[in-house]
Amino acid sequence: MARKGGSMAGTGLGRFVRLGGLLALVALVVTACADVQEDGSPDGGATGPTADRQVPDNRDITIKIAVNPWDGSAANANVAKVLLEDELGYTVELVEIDEFAQFPALATGDLDATLEVWPSGHGKDYKKYIEAGAGVVDGGELGVIGQIGWWLPTYLLEERPELATWEGLKGNEDLFRTAESGDAGQILGGDPSFVTFDQAIADNLGLNLKVVYAGSEAAQLSALDAAYQKQEPILFYFWTPHWAHAQYDLTMVELPEVTPECEDAAVNDPDAYACGYPQDVLYKAFHDGLQAKAPSAFAFLSAMSYTNEDQNAIALEIHNGVDPAEAARTWIDAHPDVWQPWVDAGLAAE
């Protein structure tokens, strides 16, 4: 990390030179050298506000953290990795895995943590693995608030303001027809591993729409950019927080309010779902053996919490081609007030 211990220039060294005390100068140099460890940095290389103490030696313990296929997940995981390694001394392995597979992996201990679960898509997993005590524990809120929905470029509403609601889409589905969707209008999905109810929503609301998957978030965003540049119609599954909202003017289509019936359908009968997506308070989930295996890592990850704006700043850098770890370090360097309490919680559990 960029922050190291304070500089000697203009303080003790300057004062001794002005006094002409050669012996004092020699003593100062010897003292400074004695404080430097083998890696060339004070106190073993610790950084930031904790640079004046020794980093715990937890290198023999590996923490495996899930990375789901979206930039926000990579942002969370890399922030955690950098701080767990630099401040608490752990070895961290990031594991690319889709959001369905991560719960069985957490239950068996093949994963130690996932840092961004969208509850609207994982009610069944919460009941099966967390409420039933089947190897997974709730790790607390991430602090990020999510909202999934159907989105349009706002320019479409200038001539067709009715498209802002699902009722206004009815009868206008042909506007979104593509070769892939055939006789129906297209709802462009992203990664097919994402938890969605879009086809059920369209069918149950009587909308002639067909979900077509772009294959990945990146491919979906490429399609959005192409349509946006030409001011063409596009209707797509998307969410906030996401850096794209800073680049494109987008409007979420108003779908029916979430009802108790839809809450039940999301868990027990997804094909019956006929509402919009609920607002998601994103949470973390851990293997139930993590606290015993690595108590300070458990405490750190439990305390980890930041905002949509924090995550978006890192995710935008990742999207722009910055290495995820470097994007995380840039944010870490600028926000010690946010992450220092997480580290303090970890140190208290050491």
Rank of each mutant, 00 (worst) to 15 (best):
I97Y: 11
D125N: 13
V92E: 11
A113P: 02
G135W: 02
L152G: 01
D98H: 11
E96N: 15
P69I: 06
V136K: 00
D98P: 09
L106K: 02
G139S: 02
L106G: 04
K81R: 15
A77C: 04
S120C: 09
Q147S: 13
A74G: 12
G133H: 05
A105S: 13
T108W: 06
E85K: 14
E87G: 07
E85G: 13
P119S: 03
T108S: 15
N76P: 01
S120P: 08
L84S: 12
V136H: 00
G123Q: 12
H122F: 15
I61H: 09
W150R: 05
D98G: 15
A66V: 05
V136Y: 00
T108V: 12
E99I: 13
G109R: 03
N78L: 06
K64M: 00
E116W: 03
E141T: 09
T91V: 04
E87V: 06
S73P: 12
V82Q: 13
I65R: 05
V67C: 08
K127Y: 05
L142A: 14
Q102K: 10
E99P: 11
E96A: 12
A132M: 01
E116P: 00
N68P: 01
D125M: 13
G143Q: 05
A66I: 08
L106N: 03
E141N: 13
I63S: 13
Y126W: 12
W150S: 09
K128H: 12
A75G: 07
D112L: 02
P104T: 04
I65Q: 14
R59C: 06
L152N: 01
N68V: 08
D86L: 09
D98W: 06
Q147T: 11
G89F: 07
I65C: 13
A101K: 15
T62M: 01
E93W: 06
N78W: 13
A132E: 03
E93M: 02
I148F: 15
V117Q: 03
P104C: 07
N68H: 12
E85M: 14
N76C: 08
G121L: 03
L111H: 09
A134R: 08
G72C: 07
K128R: 14
P104K: 09
V117G: 02
G72F: 06
E96K: 14
V79M: 13
V67M: 12
G135F: 04
W118Q: 06
K64S: 01
I61L: 10
G123V: 08
G140R: 00
D138P: 01
A66T: 10
G135I: 01
G89V: 11
G143H: 02
